[in-house]
Design a protein around this nucleic acid. Structure first.
Length: 283
DNA sequence: ATGGGGGCCTGCCGGC
DNA sequence: TGCCGGCAGGCCCCCA
């Protein structure tokens, strides 16, 4: 689920429940996700206001009035859901806790935000807000694909001399931060580039053409997620859940959507992950 | 330095 | 019906 557009969709969904709101209490139901939680996490997430709810790549960043920032990563299977939380006043109204509800945030406005992650590839950490960019997980990230620092010269320079398949290069969060398996496949389809092609062997104009394509693919996905956000207003609605029509991802065996193309979408494995592409129009 | 592969977890789906 | 292998949207870390 969570690549950049999904995380942005989650962020937008959480804004009304969390930004500017005091976090009264946090339930921490296990000692770790991918890594151990930071020391005294529940204490440090008690009676603090969420001043700002930001996103960097696939990470959610909650700047707290305590001077700390809470980092949240959804991993492969992380979900955030909002429900109403009468803080004990109407216990019978509480939806039943579900399996893998690892952390629950109780907000002063009555919202309850639940982090659920079956596979536990997700992560949470706390750091000083002023040095957040120096955090181990954030300092290695390349530019935001929808930001000004991501442009044609940057991508051309990043690909130059790279002997790795372009599929791997675009998944490299140090080159551009936020793409995952789905949107890399979709980007390469629109660019007409085979995922097997070596990054360093693509002409500069074709690399440059990928920049606006990446922006468009991500923007459209955010747009699609945003439009389905209406659903989350219902009680216990699920954030980051949206329908998006993919051109190649998960379409193995189906016809290529390019007009007049006779190709069939093919799946190959690259470094253990599936790549979907049209062998006819992607070269 | 760069590139490739293993491993972390649970759940689900298809085949036998 | 049950078991088993394969696969899943991420990413750190180790090795060559």
């Amino acid at each position: 689920m969570p690549e950049l557009p999904e995380v942005e969709t989650v962020r937008r969904g959480l804004l009304p429940a969390m930004e500017g709101v005091v976090l009264k209490l946090t339930d921490v139901n296990r000692p770790d996700l991918r890594w151990p939680f930071p020391e005294r996490m529940a204490d440090r997430l008690r009676d603090v206001r969420v001043d700002r709810l930001r996103r960097r790549s696939k990470y959610l960043l909650l700047d707290l009035s305590s001077g700390e920032t809470l980092l949240i990563h959804l991993g492969m299977s992380g979900r955030m859901t909002i429900s109403s939380d009468p803080l004990g006043q109407f216990l019978h109204d509480h939806p039943m806790p579900e399996k893998h509800d690892h952390v629950v945030f109780h907000m002063e406005n009555g919202a309850r935000v639940t982090f659920n992650d079956p596979r536990r590839f997700g992560a949470m950490d706390l750091m000083a807000t002023e040095s957040a960019e120096q955090h181990k997980l954030l300092s290695v990230l390349g530019p935001e694909p929808l930001g000004n620092a991501f442009d044609e010269p940057h991508l051309i320079a990043a690909f130059k001399g790279r002997n790795t398949p372009v599929k791997s290069a675009l998944l490299d969060q140090g080159i551009v931060a936020g793409l995952g398996n789905i949107y890399v496949c979709e980007t390469l389809y629109r660019a007409g580039v085979s995922p097997r092609r070596k990054a360093g062997r693509i002409s500069a104009p074709r690399v440059a053409a990928m920049v606006p394509i990446i922006r468009a693919v991500l923007s459209e996905a955010i747009e699609a997620g945003g439009s389905s956000l209406r659903d989350f207003r219902q009680a216990d609605g699920e954030l980051g859940y949206f329908q998006h029509r993919f051109d190649v991802y998960d379409r193995e065996g189906q016809p290529c959507r390019t007009p007049d193309c006779t190709g069939v979408i093919t799946r190959i494995a690259q470094s253990g992950r599936s790549s979907f592409y049209c062998p006819v129009c992607q070269r």
